[in-house]
Design a protein around this nucleic acid. Structure first.
Lengths: 130, 130
DNA sequence: GGCTAAGGTTACCCAAAAGTACCTACTTCA
DNA sequence: TGAAGTAGGTACTTTTGGGTAACCTTAGCC
């Protein structure tokens, strides 16, 4: 029984949807990161969720996992695959749109904070997009 | 206590995330639609979910609701606001990326179907984006 | 020996999202 | 008279996503 989608957007949201995946991907947009670096940069994520989301992204071919060394304490790094990098444009546009929306909410008197106003990793791509 | 986001992407997913909102928005990308049209075009959505999602999109300023006539049966239409239309680029990119991923899954021997291979409404914007 | 650090896994629990089912009100048409 | 269309509300249940806390291995430090 083949899995079915109504429209392409669903297939994309299956990969980058959820609370943590876009955040992780934005950080990986900066380049290869260690597991511990990600945990420091995303303070609210738990070890369980970080590992779980990274495993799913790996299973979808978005990121690669590298283990350096054979004995603990291990050094594990994650990096975007070539396919994962093709998400850059989407993530940048979503960052920009989201920040514009936050501005509007603030202007409308609804106080909203944004902790990481840099476009998180994909700034190079951002320059091409405008 | 202000609501906080880590990065802009979160604010965007709050608006277009979930199972139904991107689908609804893609259909509204074609132009104004009646409630009953949407239900026909999205056969699996329930009346409850459709109404609920439309209310949320309206509350976020993405769509407008118009009631035509004063006596039942009412004709209710929904349309994108100017702000809602600024989501077009994101939705198109997500459609394109998702369809590419579905192709890859099929090539990898994982059967996936897509019911609505048109880029669902935003085709005009699509031409500008490439 | 006891601590921290690395990078996990597991069992369990809660809350939000989504689904099911049934209800309203009004009109037209057979 | 009663079905069907139009638009929506509500109570209840199920499913999923995410959170908590405990546990693992191995090494280095004091």
């Amino acid at each position: 029984m083949a899995k079915t989608y109504n429209i392409g957007v669903e297939a994309t949201l299956e990969v980058i949807g959820g609370k943590w995946k876009p955040i992780i991907l934005c950080h990986l947009g900066k380049g290869q990161q260690r597991s511990s670096e990600l945990r420091r940069e995303i303070p609210d994520i738990t070890q369980k969720m970080l590992t779980q989301q990274l495993r799913e992204l790996e299973g979808d071919g978005i990121i690669v996992r590298h283990v350096h060394g054979t004995k603990a304490p291990f050094c594990v790094t994650y990096d975007l695959t070539a396919f994962g990098k093709t998400l850059g444009g989407i993530l940048v546009q979503m960052s920009v749109w989201g920040e514009r929306r936050i501005e509007q909410l603030n202007e409308a008197g609804e106080p909203v904070e944004i902790l990481n106003p840099d476009h998180s990793g994909y700034a190079d791509i951002l320059n091409q997009v405008g």
